[in-house]
């Protein structure tokens, strides 16, 4: 049986005076890809930001490897093995590709070197444009860099927010391929609007609606449930 790597229990998050997350509860089994689905504004991105400590929960618990991490600062959460790829990719525009990756490398040991070699093999464009400023990369290349940066450390869990957003279909394929590769080595929580991509990568899913987790199950089952897809995802 799969062990649980991350668990959210009745997480509620406020941003200023706004109550964004009302009740988010789900478990992330180790070694799987858990997909968070939902319409725009449902609270998927805030959920990832709450896990990462960027918008800390005001109620409920986030447990990672059995430890409650609600009160931890984002850098502590990152140092404990959670990598984050934000929706806007968070590329440092003035830094070169190499520098973007160097900032991310928490240490330079055998594992990170191995990870770096692996991502450069996976994304040859990053090697090609190693000295090019991050701000001058195409949308797809920026996404590759953001994923590489999160993966280069020995992270046990990756939180990836809408990796296909704004990318051409051919680039989406490439990004999807890379996440499928990473799936073999790490656990992933994926927020994705592109249902085709989510269904190909995901093992299990949780639907978030109006700041609450309203439904969950295996991805293979969701594809059969047209009513559920229409009700919560607007997919006919």
């Amino acid at each position: 049986m799969m062990s649980t790597l991350l668990e959210l229990n009745n997480v509620q998050t406020h941003i200023n005076q706004f109550h964004i997350l009302h009740d988010i509860s789900f478990e992330v089994p180790k070694g799987e890809v858990t997909v968070l689905l939902g319409r725009n504004g449902a609270g998927k991105t805030t959920t990832l930001r709450s896990i990462m400590g960027l918008n800390p929960p005001t109620e409920g618990t986030v447990s990672y490897k059995g430890q409650v991490i609600n009160k931890w600062k984002p850098h502590m959460i990152a140092r404990n093995g959670i990598g984050y790829v934000p929706e806007d990719q968070g590329i440092f525009g003035d830094l070169t590709v190499g520098e973007n990756i160097r900032v991310a490398m928490q240490k330079e040991d055998e594992t990170t070197t191995e990870h770096l070699e692996w991502v450069l093999e996976l994304f040859p464009d990053l090697k090609k444009f190693w000295k090019k400023p991050g701000g001058q990369l195409s949308g797809g290349q920026k996404q590759m860099l953001a994923i590489a940066r999160a993966y280069v450390n020995d992270n046990e869990l990756l939180l990836i927010d809408e990796p296909s957003k704004g990318l051409a279909p051919i680039i989406v394929e490439k990004v999807m391929e890379s996440i499928l590769y990473m799936k073999e080595k790490t656990t992933i929580v994926l927020v994705e609007q592109n249902f085709m991509m989510a269904s190909k990568i995901g093992d299990s899913f949780h639907i978030i609606d109006d700041g609450k987790t309203v439904h969950n199950g295996m991805m293979s089952d969701l594809k059969q449930d047209k009513n559920l897809m229409k009700k919560y995802l607007g997919i006919a």
Binding site: P74, H75, A78
Partner: peptide
């Protein structure tokens, strides 16, 4: 130095890379 330059551009992202800003 890289961290400072990166922090000028996006301090939130720097924190999520494990840096105590």
């Amino acid at each position: 130095g890289l961290i400072v330059r990166a922090g000028v551009m996006n301090k939130e992202m720097v924190q999520t890379l494990g840096v105590n800003i």
